[in-house]
Design a protein around this nucleic acid. Structure first.
Lengths: 234, 234
DNA sequence: TTGACTCACTTTGTATACATTTATTATACA
DNA sequence: TGTATAATAAATGTATACAAAGTGAGTCAA
């Protein structure tokens, strides 16, 4: 019972960080968080140290925990590394998945689909995260899994806008993402590594286009006059 | 001062696990370890949670910390994954290294060479670990770095015998490893990624041959008579 | 002898109190 | 008014005390 509160606290903190409810760099107050989760500072601090080693937060000497930042240089590396890690994981997931794991993945995909169609951005992001984490578990590769989890922290935080469709284009993208997930499940279930890799890379391309737009948004229009012709451009 | 004891405790525990002084699966008693490091159980447990998330130990509900095991299925994955991670790290290290980091790497290599030539197996293993960790830091890739660190935990533990040369063959291998390190430093310093990758893969081959011998040792001789002809075969 | 149960003992988990460090405010002085 | 410094408040880090769970020896009944 008591231990449940601790794991729940850790899980909730992770979720809040992934949802950017706790923004990068945000200061984490021990006393208020401990009160919030109904535990004392001792177990909370143990959670902090766990999250620090997982890459969610960093702990500074005598000034407590802060949400891990997302500096620009790292983002560049993120885009460089994602295809390698995601495709390697996909390959091994297709090779090593168990049928129980496939069933679990389908459950997650079902929940994800519902949330995405309902336009619940926060929940979609978390379920998308869970989806890819589950594929990571299928790979049975603790080494790459560690890399994957760190990628997903940043990926989910960056993609927070992804599942909040505004334009009809956005909605089409979300629909495509759902379909890609379904295809990935099939490839993994059929144990076809090379197909799983292809689908994963396509999925990454879709996500990357959106993320890059977020990181490097369209510049504001220079010619003010022409704005009249496309009033919703911004 | 007090915080130093904590980081020292964490570093020492890591080293003891890497040296297999604390064997895989070994139980970690909180009170005795706390006493040993001159700290109370509270900070020690925080260290435990850190090490758990780093993959050095695992913490079981109500029965404390145990050194992470090295099960056989994972070893298979280890050999599969090492070339990918090590070579990717090497590439980016050559691309992104700073001169300060190169200087640090040379220092480590110097200490490593001394320890290896002196036949100090434990120290050699740790310094070899530090050498490859420093290359990991040069890569400036937190995602792959996480994978690397997990690989090195198992690599260093497995290779514990590597730097305890018994036969003259073993001594030749250690000498070759030292030379390969030097060549890797040069490639990284010269910022030649493809060369760094080649050298890293060669280095891995050398290590792999030795490790596989450790994991899958030569079978005991079946023909007892022939033993007389090669008394040091076992 | 075996098996289950009890009770003492050991170990882990949590809360609280205290020490130490950092942040903030107030005050003095230029 | 602005800066430096002292005093105060707030937050983090650690130790200790207590609660809860696990472990094991010993006992007794079948």
């Amino acid at each position: 019972m008591a231990k449940l509160k601790k794991t729940k606290c850790a899980a909730d903190l992770r979720a809040r960080i992934l949802r950017q409810e706790l923004a990068p760099g945000c200061d984490l107050d021990e006393v208020s968080l401990a009160a919030e989760y109904g535990i004392s500072r001792t177990p909370l601090r143990e959670v902090f140290h766990r999250l620090a080693a997982e890459g969610y937060i960093r702990i500074e000497e005598n000034r407590g925990g802060k949400v891990a930042s997302m500096d620009f240089p790292v983002l560049r590396v993120f885009f460089q590394t994602a295809p390698l890690v995601y495709s390697s994981i996909a390959r091994q997931a297709a090779e090593n998945r168990t049928s129980v794991q496939v069933a679990g993945l389908k459950d997650t995909q079902l929940a994800f689909t519902k949330a995405a169609r309902a336009g619940d951005a926060a929940q979609s992001g978390l379920l998308n995260h869970a989806f890819h984490e589950q594929i990571g578990e299928m790979a049975q590769n603790p080494y790459l899994f560690a890399a994957l989890m760190r990628m997903l922290i940043d990926h989910t935080r960056l993609g927070q806008t992804f599942f909040a469709p505004q334009s009809s284009e956005d909605q089409a993208r979300v629909k495509k993402a759902i379909e890609q997930h379904d295809a990935m499940i099939s490839a993994i279930e059929a144990q076809e590594p090379s197909l799983a890799i292809d689908l994963t890379l396509q999925h990454w391309e879709l996500s990357r286009d959106q993320l890059e737009k977020f990181v490097r948004p369209d510049p504001l229009p220079i010619d003010v006059i022409s704005m009249k012709d496309r009033p919703r451009a911004v």
